[in-house]
Design a protein around this nucleic acid. Structure first.
Lengths: 223, 223
DNA sequence: CGGTGGGTTGAGGTATTTCAAGGCTCGTGG
DNA sequence: CCACGAGCCTTGAAATACCTCAACCCACCG
């Protein structure tokens, strides 16, 4: 669709080594670029590739027939996404900002896993780690208050993308809201509340750069 | 703790064949019985066994420090649970009613998967199917209304345990509520509403036996 | 510059929770 | 055999956390 591609068969199968430290088998690798907002793949589409974010950020989500959206995960630099055991994608994936991904053909991966137990174990480990994330997120969505959700979100992102003391969020308030099962206003209010309590501060006026001033206090909100 | 055990080393490794049609390797198998309310394993405990429900029902859940509970799944006859890739349980599992389980030592399973690709694939398939369930449940918890959640729950249970036209739920309203991220009163009201609309009816006065009178109409509530 | 895409904040509305009362079933013990 | 309490469920009324609607601000961009 908007697949603003930029085919660049890479020569080093570095991707594999990320995928759970695998063998050095040769696999067709390419890099693609997606523009902000572009769809990488759609829910229920056959899964032809597995992806790794090189730079940028991806959201993967499900939609209800009336447009309600639930984001299941954000994928940041280094993350692998689009891995499906059955051959069908169960989320739609979109670039949040301009994003570069590396990709491998799913079938060739399955092929390799067939004879290489290390690769097979890597696939299992990745699936299990996605499962753990989903399980924790169920608890958040089912039982946590808005403040607790936002605090948990900040703590999660802090680990994943704070550099030089500041966390630069690629996603909008709406994205955060759809990840946390809230509205964007509620997210905004929770962030303001945390700012008011001196737990965090904003940098620049775009409000996407956050400095965590009091991590221990923030952690108290995340039960 | 309450492990009301009833050790009975089984002789037929039928368990394996359930686990994704695997090989016929010999594995130590046992059956255990848990009384209603008994804990099978606790969250964060080392995972020594993998379990299969023979008869009865299990709930697995997470707790917040203040007691809020989120049930991640119900395990009914035939279901396998407690499978962890890392060696630690991420849920507490309890018997909802008197329950018989079969169990295998986790390590021996991992051992077998090491050399038998079929077993390894079975583990991956199971993990992936747990993941799919969790992903769908995130959408439910994050974005569906109480009526939609209850409708989805009934449809899920209908597939899994309706016999002779009636669905006999093993779990209480509180369990359902903690599965759906609601309160027990809200669940009760939603069920009453569906009954009022002629979508379902109750059998007996324990209210745990449900007859689905209008499946298509019920499905309309599940977006 | 005007418009568009965020973001914040206020006011009011509402779905769901909380609190409370009452009913039914079942097991236990007098 | 009946009384009693515990567990479970339903229903009503009141409270509230979050949502909706709306106004406004700011940055960015053609």
């Amino acid at each position: 669709m908007f697949v603003n591609l930029n085919a660049t068969p890479s020569t080093k199968p570095k991707f594999l080594s990320e995928l759970g430290s695998l063998s050095q088998a040769e696999i067709a690798l390419s890099e693609f670029k997606y523009r902000r907002g572009a769809e990488v793949f759609g829910e229920a589409e056959p899964a032809e590739y597995v992806y790794q974010v090189i730079e940028g950020a991806i959201r993967s989500y499900k939609l209800l027939s009336d447009g309600r959206r639930q984001i299941g995960a954000f994928h940041l630099a280094g993350d692998i996404f689009g891995l499906e055991n059955g051959g069908i994608h169960r989320f739609t994936a979109e670039a949040i900002v301009d994003t570069t991904v590396r990709l491998v053909k799913r079938v060739s991966l399955a092929h390799i896993a067939e004879r290489d137990a290390t690769v097979a174990r890597g696939l299992l480990t990745m699936t299990a780690s996605n499962l753990k994330h989903a399980e924790d997120h169920m608890l958040l969505l089912g039982r946590k208050t808005s403040l607790e959700r936002v605090a948990a979100f900040l703590l999660e992102m802090d680990v994943r993308l704070t550099a030089a003391g500041v966390m630069a969020l690629p996603m909008s308030r709406r994205d955060i809201a759809d990840y946390l099962g809230l509205t964007l206003e509620t997210v905004s209010r929770a962030l303001s509340a945390l700012e008011g309590q001196g737990v965090l501060g904003f940098l620049g006026q775009t409000q996407r750069q956050i400095v965590l001033l009091d991590r221990p206090k923030l952690a108290e909100f995340d039960l």
